[in-house]
Amino acid sequence: MNAATKLGVYVLGLAVVFGGALGVGSAVGDVGPAPAKPEHGTAHSTPAADSHGGHEQTTAPAQDDTPGGLQVSQDGYTLNPLTTVKAGEATDFRFTVTGPDGRPVTGYQVEHDKKLHFIVVSRDLGTFQHLHPDMAAGGVWSVRLTLDDPGAYRAFADFAPTGGSGLTLGADLLVAGDYKPDPLPEVARTAEVDGYQVSLDGDLVPGQAAKLTLSVSKDGEPVTDLQPYLGAYGHLVALRAGDLAYLHVHPEDSGKAGPEVTFYAEAPSAGDYRLFLDFKHDGKVRTADFTARAGAGQPKPTAEPGTGPSHDEHTH
């Protein structure tokens, strides 16, 4: 085959390949640049038909409704305990929160007067500690911690990184020794601590924000001079029995120093919960605890059209 003939065959081959490519392009649509990867924290979206003319619009996926405290890592942030605890020994407990870059976080927003709230409870929900650790340079937190009895405990770090949303991360702490869990205390409307009586009014409702009012009295007389604690006249932590899910709780600012302190709590499901109220009076913080039941076997209430459960950014 001479040179001219070879050139003709080559050109004919290019035409066939190019024509095939055009056919494929017509079958699959226009070819464009690959979509950019979403930035960290950006919700993925899917096209949906617009009811006012058929144009496409983006619809964000349903939000993750997993309760806080069930995960040791979320949104790139991880709780890292660094210390082993022995029963009955005071320990300088240390931990870090690492960020999406793998380094300890050093920037935190102040919420309820603190950069980070550290909660430690026994797995049977019989003991409760609300602690406020100090952060050293480099993002290492430390706090004096004593766990009197052997057993399984859950530690919660409740915080909001600078420029980010609030998170509650949880990690198990295991204390060696013979362990016998206590049964969950019975459901009750009253609690006593250090000579104070605290009563609970209101019920947890599965799937909705419910109003809970706690009233403090001493020797039968209402306490009307509660002292501010963590930016309010009371601080409430609510945990679900069984998995220790950490509930969204936020206080109502009535401006009154007692005897009533009101909160709104969201129970994610029916079942039993433990409520721990911290209040300050005569210069000392005390904790009253309750077992409450959400649902009591009743079906989950249905929101009226156009309404839905309240979702406040604050965790407590």
Rank of each mutant, 00 (worst) to 15 (best):
A191T: 05
A188F: 02
A48P: 02
A292W: 02
G177V: 00
G306H: 09
V237I: 14
P305I: 00
A43F: 06
P228G: 08
K280M: 09
G308A: 15
R293Q: 12
P35Y: 04
A21W: 15
A160E: 07
A60L: 11
G68N: 14
P67V: 13
L204F: 00
L212V: 07
Y229R: 07
R123V: 10
A171E: 08
A232E: 02
N2H: 07
A303H: 12
F95H: 01
Q74W: 14
S45D: 13
G139W: 03
P185E: 06
G271V: 07
K300F: 08
L244N: 12
D219S: 15
H44I: 13
G166S: 13
P61V: 08
Y273A: 04
T59G: 01
V237K: 00
L230Q: 10
T146A: 10
P81H: 08
A27C: 05
G170R: 04
D272Q: 12
L147F: 05
P150H: 02
D149P: 01
E221W: 07
V72W: 03
L7K: 13
R274Y: 00
V31M: 14
T58W: 10
A209T: 10
E313N: 12
G8A: 14
Q298C: 05
H40I: 11
L12G: 06
V143P: 00
A49E: 14
A257Q: 14
G164W: 02
A292F: 06
H235E: 05
L173V: 10
H112L: 04
L204N: 00
T307L: 10
D243N: 15
K115F: 06
S215F: 03
D201I: 09
L167H: 04
P309S: 14
S269I: 04
T302M: 11
D101K: 06
A155H: 08
G25I: 07
T66H: 06
T213P: 02
G195N: 13
E56V: 13
D194N: 15
H250L: 01
D225L: 05
G29M: 00
G151L: 02
G207F: 01
R123K: 15
K211S: 11
A171I: 03
N80T: 15
Q129G: 00
A171H: 10
A238K: 00
K256M: 13
E252M: 12
Y108W: 08
G23N: 05
L14T: 10
G102M: 12
V249T: 09
H52R: 09
A232M: 01
T98I: 15
L125R: 02
T98W: 08
G68V: 09
T66Q: 12
D92T: 09
A152E: 13
G306A: 10
A303R: 09
V31T: 13
A152T: 13
S142T: 07
G88I: 07
T91G: 01
T224E: 14
A191Y: 03
G308H: 09
L247G: 00
D158P: 04
T307E: 03
F118V: 02
A4L: 15
E260C: 05
G102K: 11
A3N: 10
A90C: 05
V193Y: 00
D219L: 08
V31D: 06
V110Q: 08
Y153N: 01
F290N: 03
R103H: 12
T224W: 05
V193N: 03
K86D: 07
